[in-house]
Write a protein that binds this DNA or RNA. Structure first.
Lengths: 329, 329
DNA sequence: GTGAAAGCGCTAACAT
DNA sequence: ATGTTAGCGCTTTCAC
C-alpha cells in the first residue's frame, strides 16, 4: 500500500503558527465574527500554506449543524427509492455537498406519516433536507427547526422554497406542437394523482387543448413503462379517434409506443407520441422520441445549494424546459 | 409548520435513567466492552423506551471514524461522475449507510494522481471508501490507514476486497449462446483499455470463441452509445462477414443496433447483437435486447456493507450474471 | 479585537 | 464490571 499519511493539521496548529489563539483563528477562517484585518489575513495565509482543512465533524458537532443532507422522497411505498430519477438527484446533491465535506442520504418519506419529518429534524447529524415528490400535508408537517435548510423539488410553501422544471410551459409547448402538426385528438397519460407536481403538467395540457377547442382526455397512471403500455391501450379503447398521446415522462411514452406497435398502429403516422424528460434513450429509440428537456441535475444542484448554504432564495425557482423535436411526433 | 421538536436525548439522559454512568451506557449500547448482563439489558431497555438515538457525529468525532462513505470513481476525466451507473452505485451505497447515520459522497479519482487517495485517507470525515473503475496503480496507492474500510467494485488486491459481477461467466454465456444459435463470426465491442474490469469480459470472449474454433475480433471503445455506433460500423468494415456483435454493455449494444439499422442490416437476421447489464430499456427496445444481468445494486450494497462494518470479507466476491434471451440475438 | 474557557455528545484510557 | 477523567477538533460565550 501507499505512502505514510501524516496526522491531519488541527486549528490549533494553524493558530500557533499564526501566533494567535484558536478562537481568533476560528473567527478568521469562518468570518463568523470580527477580526482585525492583519490577523485575519495572516491566519488565512498560514492555513493556506500549511494546507489546513477543517474537520467537518468537529465543526458540525460544535456548531450543531450536521454532516449530511438527506434527500427525502415521499411516496406510498419504500420502492420510490428504486428510481433512476432519484439516484440522479442524489448524485447531483452529492456533487454540491462534497465540497463542504458533507455527505448525502436517501430516505423514503411515507406519505401517511408526516411525523417522520420530525425525526429528520431532531437528528443532529442532518444538515438539511431536500424533499422530493412533496405533497401539501408533508409541507405542512415540516418542522420549524428545519427552516432555511429545507428545499423541495416539486411544490413548495412559504417556508419551503421550491425548485422544479417549468413543466407547465414544457407541457404546453409539447401539446402546441402536437396541435400545430395537425393532431386534433390528443390524449394525456399522466402520473399518480397524489403527486402535486404532475398536476401542473396536466393543467397545462388541459388549458392548451381547450384553448385550441380540442377535447381534454386524461388518463391517470404512474411513471412506469407498463403504465404507458396499458395507458395507450386504454386511450385507444376509450377514444378510438385518438391521433396523439402526450405522456407525463419518456418512460411512459416508450411504453405507449411499444403498445401501439403491438397493435399495428404506426408512430407517428397514425398516432403521434411525445414524452417529457429527454432521457438519453429518447434519442436512441426507434422512432426517436419527441420530448421536452428536464434539467434534473441542475434542479437538484439548486436545491442542494440552497440547503447547504441556508441561503435566502426565491420561494420558487423554475428551470426552463425545451421542446426537442424528433421522429415520434 | 409542524409540531415542536423536543431536544434530542443524549447518552447522559439514558445513563441517568438507567442508573449507570455514561461510560457503562456507552458500552452497553455499542457492545464494545464487557458489561454485566443485567446492566446491559436495563440500559438497552431504557434507551429503547425513551427512543434514544445516538448522535453519529459525536460518535465519529470521539471514535475517530468519520461520517461519510466516499464512492471514488477512477477515470481520465471528472465526467466519469456523469454516469447513471455511478448514480446507481451511490444510491445503493446510501441505502446501506443510512441506517448508521452515515452519508455518502461521490468523487472523481484522477487516474494519474493516485496521491488523491491520501487526501481521502487523511480526511477525518471519511468513514470509508468504495473504489470504482479501479486500476492496479490505484490499488497500489491505497494508504494503509484505509485498510479494512475500503472496497473495490472491480479489481481488488490483498488489501482491498473486490465486489463485482462475474462478467467472465456472463460474457461466456452470451458468446456461447451466439455460437450455439449458429453465429460463426462474432465481433466484440469492448471498453476502454485502461479499465481492468473489462479485461475479464474480453478474456472470456476470447477463450470462448477460440474454444469454438472461431476468430477473435476485438474492437476497443468506451461505454457510450456513440461507441456502439462507430464500433459496429468499424466491425462491418473490417470484417464484412460479421454475423454477431457482442457489446461490453447495453448502451453500446443500442448504438450498434441503430448503426446496423442505418445500414439496412437486419437485427437479428443478418447480424445478431447482444449486450451486458440488462438495463430496463433492454426489454423495451425494438428489437428487445438479448443480454446478461448485472446486479449493480447488490454489488454496491455488498461493498458498502463491508466498508461500513469494517468486516473481514473474502478477497473477492462474485455476483452471478444470468443470460437473458430476447429478440436481438 | 482577542484570549481563556466551556461545551457539542460521545468513546476510550485509566482507575478501582 | 463499572465509574472517573480525558479527550476528539471545533465554535462560541464571556471576560478583558
Amino acid at each position: 500500500m501507499g505512502e505514510e499519511i501524516r496526522d491531519p493539521l488541527t486549528l490549533e496548529d494553524v493558530a500557533r503558527a499564526a501566533g494567535v489563539s484558536r478562537a481568533t483563528a476560528s473567527r478568521a477562517l469562518t468570518g463568523s465574527d470580527t477580526t482585525s484585518t492583519p490577523a485575519r489575513q495572516r491566519v488565512r495565509a498560514v492555513a493556506e500554506r500549511m494546507g489546513y482543512a477543517p474537520n467537518p465533524l468537529a465543526r458540525a458537532l460544535a456548531g450543531g449543524s450536521g454532516t449530511r443532507v438527506v434527500v427525502a422522497v415521499a411516496g406510498p411505498r419504500p420502492d420510490v427509492l428504486e428510481d433512476p430519477y432519484m439516484w440522479r438527484v442524489l448524485g447531483a446533491t452529492a456533487a454540491v455537498c462534497d465540497g463542504a465535506g458533507v455527505g448525502v442520504s436517501l430516505q423514503w418519506l411515507p406519505l401517511d406519516a408526516p411525523a417522520s419529518l420530525g425525526r429528520l429534524a431532531a437528528d443532529r447529524s442532518v444538515r438539511g433536507v431536500v424533499l422530493c415528490n412533496t405533497t401539501e400535508p408533508l409541507l405542512a408537517a415540516v418542522p420549524d427547526v428545519l427552516r432555511g435548510r429545507v428545499a423541495s423539488i416539486g411544490i413548495g410553501s412559504a417556508a419551503v422554497p421550491s425548485f422544479d422544471v417549468d413543466n407547465a410551459s414544457g407541457a404546453a409547448a409539447v401539446v402546441r406542437h402536437l396541435h400545430s402538426s395537425g393532431r386534433r385528438h390528443i390524449a394525456m397519460l399522466t402520473g399518480p394523482s397524489w403527486l402535486p407536481c404532475s398536476w401542473r403538467s396536466v393543467e397545462a395540457y388541459r388549458s392548451t387543448v381547450e384553448a385550441a377547442g380540442l377535447p381534454a382526455r386524461i388518463l391517470p397512471g404512474d411513471f412506469g413503462f407498463e403504465d404507458g403500455r396499458s395507458g395507450a391501450l386504454e386511450a385507444l379503447h376509450r377514444w378510438p379517434d385518438t391521433d396523439a398521446i402526450y405522456a407525463i415522462c419518456d418512460t411512459v411514452a416508450f411504453g405507449a409506443i411499444v403498445a401501439l406497435r403491438g397493435l399495428g398502429v404506426d408512430v407517428p403516422d397514425d398516432v403521434a407520441v411525445a414524452g417529457f424528460d429527454d432521457v438519453p434513450a429518447a434519442a436512441w429509440a426507434g422512432p426517436a422520441l419527441t420530448t421536452a428537456t428536464h434539467p434534473v441535475s441542475r434542479i437538484a444542484a439548486g436545491a442542494a445549494t440552497a440547503v447547504l448554504n441556508e441561503a435566502r432564495v426565491p420561494s420558487a425557482t423554475w428551470y426552463p424546459s425545451e421542446l426537442v423535436l424528433r421522429e415520434s411526433a
